[in-house]
């Protein structure tokens, strides 16, 4: 078989076309490639981004690109239609970027969680509105430069996975494209669980985070190793850390990205303090029920 047809077959099998319109090194297409392998052909995907909506566009499964303000709601309609037609064998995925999930559509995601809609809600988090040109979102971390926070963001990142977990849904988890096996295991679990599943995945955005695209996977891996991006799942209210890496200084993660270039030593110290506090809490609650 010629090389081209070999690849064409691979794209067909992995349900996503090679050569998306995303930037080089974008974590968006990488995320979809990793998870579509588990989701399989009987999947419908409704949603936006991140600006890796350009990735969703290249998916070879039924999908609908939506504006930020339509996260989890159109998918709710799909779930209902499938129930009306007795097609519960189909997995409905609702995807939203960080701005969509944490800001403009947070109420919708919350309402879908409250109704326990049978869908997998994925937050594709690249920590800013990238499609519009790198503007701050509710999921932009403290201190990060964006075009609307030229001096660095003043407020911390919203803890959306914990907010959704308090809706008492069957499954909430965080994941990273730097840990594909872990991510796939979580998707598999979500696929096999009835009700509302929330998966919060960090994807690297070299364009918005200001680093060399070759370092994409390395940067998000650093985030996990520094505990800036802890990997855990909350199943039926019980928290479990799925990875407990040896902790690296958060500075290693911050210094790898120019969006944090301007941070002072005090700010870095403050961030380290926050990370440590959260790490301690997570370790304390590991294996315990965290829903009231």
């Amino acid at each position: 078989m010629g090389l081209n047809s070999l690849f064409d077959e691979y794209y067909e099998k992995s349900f996503i076309q090679g050569g998306t319109t995303c930037c080089p090194g974008c974590g968006g297409p990488l995320l979809w490639r990793i998870i579509l392998e588990i989701l399989g052909s009987k999947t419908i995907i409704y949603g936006d981004g991140p600006c890796a909506m350009c990735a969703v566009r290249n998916i070879k499964l039924p999908n609908f690109n939506l504006h930020f303000s339509f996260i989890a709601d159109t998918a709710t309609g799909v779930v209902a239609a499938l129930a009306a037609k007795g097609r519960e064998d189909i997995t409905v995925v609702s995807s939203g970027g960080d701005g969509a999930t944490a800001d403009i559509s947070l109420g919708k995601v919350s309402a879908a969680a409250e109704r326990n809609e049978n869908m997998i809600q994925i937050c594709v988090d690249n920590e800013a509105y990238m499609n519009t040109g790198i503007q701050k979102s509710g999921l932009t971390p403290y201190g990060a430069w964006t075009t609307t926070t030229p001096l660095g963001k003043e407020a911390p990142k919203k803890d959306v996975p914990m907010i959704i977990a308090q809706h008492n849904v069957p499954y909430v988890t965080t994941a990273s494209v730097a840990y594909p096996k872990d991510l796939q295991a979580k998707i598999r679990k979500a696929k096999g669980t009835e009700g509302f599943k929330y998966i919060h995945v960090v994807i690297p955005c070299p364009t918005g985070w200001r680093f060399n695209p070759a370092k994409s996977v390395e940067v998000v891996r650093l985030g996990v190793q520094a505990w800036a991006w802890p990997l855990y799942e909350i199943e039926e209210g019980f928290l479990r850390l799925t990875l407990k890496p040896r902790q690296r200084p958060v500075e290693d993660y911050l210094k790898a990205q120019n969006r944090f270039r301007h941070l002072t030593d005090e700010q870095i110290q403050y961030i380290q303090g926050e990370v440590d506090r959260k790490r301690e809490r997570l370790l304390e609650f590991d294996g315990k029920r965290i829903i009231l």
């Binding site: 081209n4 050569g19 695209p213 996977v217 390395e218």
Partner: peptide, 22 residues
């Protein structure tokens, strides 16, 4: 390819360098 030979699809490869870095 076949667990043996690393091949690239230069039609679509963006030259990001992630593969080299990883």
């Amino acid at each position: 390819k076949g667990g043996e030979e690393v091949v690239f699809d230069y039609r679509f490869c963006k030259g990001c360098g992630v593969c080299a870095n990883e």
